[in-house]
Design a binder for these strands. Structure first.
Lengths: 222, 222
DNA sequence: CAGCCTTTGGTGACCTAGTCACAGACGGAG
DNA sequence: CTCCGTCTGTGACTAGGTCACCAAAGGCTG
């Protein structure tokens, strides 16, 4: 487990011996099945989670049921919201749900605070994570406030497909990802299909013309 | 100036003597006229600013010219984006503009890092600020993604009016505040006027029926 | 004061996105 | 195969954003 930790969190390899001891003693391996809500909007924080494997989706749910994905916590990452909660002793402003089986290390709040107080390396690690997420959130605000849905959808499809040829997701899944409505996504996808950019199947979208989607995804190129 | 500092930043009153020395020596009083861009999107960070007086508006500007206000830095606060930049040695993701004459203390990056490394009190202060802003940003995302413009506008008018009877702002100003378009705000305001909620003048909106606006601002009450 | 210019606000026409309602299609369970 | 829940498609409508343009308010200059 210790080898795991520094393999996946290289930033923690340099941890001071004393800090390393606090970490090892305060940490508890956890495994969570997919679809579990690891924290809910409005609840208090119970542990600082270092994700070793799998992915946690952090999302905001509106009263009317619409949702938007804020970010994902993947191997080698931690959750800013959790950090925020622990440091301010406040409550969560969103919810976290496991998308896959997640294996991780849960660090007790006491140990977390003690590490923050004593370890330069640990602090640097936590702050680094903060910086990345804040940038992400700013980008998200910009996208949501000013972005066009077709561009955002094209970008999302490319991102989710990676090097694969298709995306396995329902229209509803894609809508949540963008904070939009299912019907809007259905219509956009139909339009993409008419334009020969994708092929649609139940629960899957095949990318048939990547270049077209890429052209769509970035408006004036970069 | 020293008395100023702890009067306005009570969290720093408990600063350790050594840290206090670093702060006093690394700090430089600054005064900035209104309308000055203190940092721009894409630029690197030059100093950590402790605002003593006045207010800095932090906003994101899209390519097409539309803007949205992310938050304001007011007396007793600091700018998370600056902190993020300093800690990650990255670049700004938004711009900051003074809205009033601003008086503050600029802390050199070296001194900032040294304080972060050595002072528990200073760290706590910086993290506290982080936590608040991250919550703010999440609320903003929720509003932008799911909120209705009439509700947001009503809330904005009430907030800007404070205890006063009117808001001095052009429709464009209000649009920027909400990340919307001027025409949309003009139409909403006209509608508010027809419903007797406000009276319109050039560059000012008088609130004639606060209760009505309040009812509008919170949908299902709380 | 008159004339001009800039800023601000108003409005119609049109487009994109989100909402509502409902129908049809698919695929797994029995 | 049939039934049923999930997923998708679509029309009709509303909200919000864009474009184009005009008009009124106020300031400035001669």
């Amino acid at each position: 487990m210790k080898n795991d930790l520094t393999a996946i969190f290289p930033a923690l390899a340099a941890l001071e011996p004393a800090a390393r001891r606090i970490l090892d003693e305060g940490v508890r391996p956890v495994t969570v099945p997919p679809g579990t809500t690891v924290f809910a909007d409005g609840s208090a924080c119970e542990a600082f989670l270092l994700v070793l494997d799998g992915s946690v989706r952090v999302q905001k749910v509106a009263e009317n049921g619409r949702e938007i994905v804020l970010y994902r916590v993947e191997p080698g990452q931690t959750c800013v919201l959790t950090t925020t909660c622990l440091l301010s002793e406040g409550i969560y402003g969103a919810e976290g749900v496991t998308e896959t089986p997640v294996r991780g290390l849960a660090l007790a709040p006491r140990a977390f605070r003690s590490l923050m107080a004593t370890s330069d390396v640990f602090r640097r690690f936590v702050f680094g994570a903060y910086a990345t997420r804040v940038s992400d959130l700013l980008m998200l605000i910009e996208e949501v406030a000013f972005g066009r849905i077709d561009q955002r959808l094209a970008a999302l499809l490319l991102e989710k497909a990676g090097t694969g040829a298709a995306v396995a997701a329902t229209h509803q899944d894609l809508a949540v990802e963008l904070g939009s409505a299912r019907e809007v996504i259905s219509r956009q996808l139909k339009d993409f299909e008419r334009r020969g950019l994708v092929a649609l199947g139940r629960g899957r979208v095949s990318l048939t013309a990547r270049e077209g989607l890429e052209k769509l995804a970035r408006p004036l190129a970069i």
